[in-house]
Computed example of a mutant assay.
Amino acid sequence: MRKMVPPSDSPRSRPPVTVLSGFLGAGKTTLLRHLLGQAEGRRWAAIVNDVAAINIDAALVAAAGAQRVVPLGNGCVCCTVRDELAETLAELAATGDYAHVFVEATGVADPRSIVRLFTRTNPFGRKLDDFAQLSALVTVVDARQFEVEERKSRDGRKRAASGVKPVFDLMLEQVECADVVVLNKCDVATAEAVRRVEALVRAVNARAEIWRVAQGRVAAAEVVGRVRFQADVTPGAAEWVRLLGGAARHAAVRTGPAVAGRHEAAFGITSFVYEERRAFAEEKLRAWFEAALPEGLLRAKGFFWVRERAADMGFASVAGGAARLEFIGTWAAALRERGVVTDAEIPPSTRERWAEPHGDRRQELVFIGVTLPEAEIRAGLAACLV
């Protein structure tokens, strides 16, 4: 990583940046070309990422109206070419020549990784926010494709192999971390399908603005007109994050409609949080996730602990019918028991969830779905307890 040069103090410093995410074929390039075609002399730049060596999308965008198009190939901006993205944005900002910068991420990019470029300092003590302002995370969703993948994941009952993320899981993550969700290709999807997809999107991210469009046709003024990204809000906009970490900590207000909206009510979308302090038996828990997930489940995420690996913090993720159970760290209680940390070194946020004799070990799982059989799910999980 090269050391980024600080921008000047001119009014044109820190240009706003709009990041376009969305799964393969959702219509990101079409949307970007349509936006750039409305530049009308304004100096806009575009950075187009492609995992392939030949960046076809950059070639298409180059003729659309941007003053400058920078291709980033052979990797994804959320992982292998993150440094190149940061350096490119810093260099564009340093020129003071561009009033807005668009970044088209690959179809497999996780927007949260791009957010971290703006909010976390690099080894030189700088962060991308010093150079450019993240204006909005925009996720493009193919309305037909989203519904197909959701039904395929749910009806097919396919389980993700270890380390392999199902397509629908990635699509949900791109929706969950978004300020704006563009429901694209609404002209080729049925009205009922569009309504259902919008309800599903709101169920997992109630904060995002949702725009129904056809052929990527969005007025540029809607995108460049105001800053929508909030560093302390956008990354945690996912409904499962809100339910696990929000201010509402009592079970009485943590169950019921996932989002109080007309579309969600019409499709019967609800959510609840399963909480327990006793340990699961790992074999029983994995068997339940493998065979007993209800058909209406859209999303489940959260923490768990099992007797066989009492020191290890478990994390469960379900998208439709595909479940992943993995271990992501060590419980603070286990670190204290080993003498690695003292009581005084346990963070306040962990202390808030502390309860003897197990400390921060807990079962805390959010379930979001359509007409969820809550009692059945709770009974199934209870049967997995030691």
Rank of each mutant, 00 (worst) to 15 (best):
T255A: 14
W288M: 01
V227N: 09
W288D: 05
G296P: 09
F280C: 01
L298T: 07
E276W: 07
A248P: 00
D232N: 09
L293N: 02
Y274W: 15
P294T: 00
A237M: 08
V273H: 00
A300V: 04
G296M: 08
E282C: 12
A300Q: 03
A265K: 11
G236D: 12
R254K: 07
E290L: 14
H250W: 10
I269G: 02
A221S: 12
V223T: 02
G256C: 02
F272G: 05
A265D: 10
G245L: 12
F267A: 13
A287G: 09
A281H: 09
F304M: 08
A310S: 13
A291Q: 15
A258Y: 03
A220V: 12
A231H: 10
W305I: 01
K301P: 03
P235R: 08
A258D: 08
H263V: 12
A260W: 04
L244S: 03
F315D: 00
E276M: 02
F304Y: 14
M313V: 14
A258W: 07
D232L: 06
V227P: 00
E275G: 04
L293Y: 05
T234D: 07
F303I: 04
A281T: 08
R262P: 12
W288G: 00
G296F: 09
F289D: 03
V224Q: 04
A237V: 06
G296L: 07
E222Y: 03
R278E: 14
S271Q: 14
T270K: 09
H250A: 15
T255L: 10
V259G: 00
A279D: 10
A281N: 12
A266C: 03
K301R: 07
V273I: 11
K284P: 11
E276D: 15
A266S: 13
G225Q: 06
E308H: 05
R307K: 11
P294G: 03
A316E: 04
T255G: 07
A258T: 05
G225Y: 06
G256A: 06
V241C: 03
T255N: 10
V273K: 00
E283C: 09
G302F: 04
F289A: 05
A247V: 10
R299I: 05
E222W: 08
K284Y: 08
A237K: 10
A231N: 02
A231S: 14
A291M: 07
A247Q: 13
A292H: 13
R278W: 11
P257F: 01
K301M: 03
R242A: 09
E308S: 11
G261S: 15
K284R: 15
L285D: 06
D232P: 01
H263I: 09
F303C: 03
A220P: 00
L293E: 01
E275M: 07
R249G: 06
E264A: 12
A291D: 14
F315Q: 08
A281L: 09
Y274Q: 09
H263T: 11
Q230P: 00
A310Q: 11
V259Q: 04
G314C: 08
V233Y: 01
D312T: 01
G245R: 14
A231P: 08
V259R: 05
G236V: 02
F289C: 11
W305G: 02
D232E: 10
A291V: 11
F272K: 01
G268N: 10
G246C: 07
A248K: 13
L298M: 08
V259C: 06
G256I: 00
A287Q: 13
L244E: 12
H250I: 10
A258K: 02
R262L: 14
V273Y: 08
S271H: 15
H263Y: 06
G225R: 01
T234G: 06
W288N: 01
D232Y: 00
